[in-house]
């Protein structure tokens, strides 16, 4: 239940953001991370960004997730 997924902030309006979650678009709330900026990677849980992912590692995280997703696809 505490699962959270990384996503990239694509648009920001007030406390609502549109994010790219591994290719899927989602609308989320940013009330818990008001300092968030466009282009930041956030961690999304239950429709809310709960934290901002460290800059350098964010890219790596996404690549890693894509890699893992691909590996699964190849397996099936």
């Amino acid at each position: 239940m505490c699962l959270a997924i990384p996503a990239k902030v694509v648009t920001l309006k007030g406390s609502i953001a549109q994010v790219d979650m591994m290719g899927n678009e989602r609308i989320i709330s940013t009330d818990l991370v008001p300092e968030v900026k466009l282009g930041d990677y956030v961690l999304v849980h239950a429709g809310f960004a709960i934290g901002i992912i460290d800059d350098e590692s964010a890219k790596e995280t996404e690549e890693l997730l894509l890699e893992v997703a691909k590996a699964y696809e190849e397996e099936e």
């Binding site: 239940m1 505490c2 959270a4 709330s29 009330d31 818990l32 849980h45 239950a46 429709g47 809310f48 709960i50």
Partner: peptide
């Protein structure tokens, strides 16, 4: 409202 500290702030909001 079921959950730990990860979820609770989203309920508080």
């Amino acid at each position: 409202g079921v959950g730990f500290e990860t979820t609770i702030p989203t309920v508080a909001v």
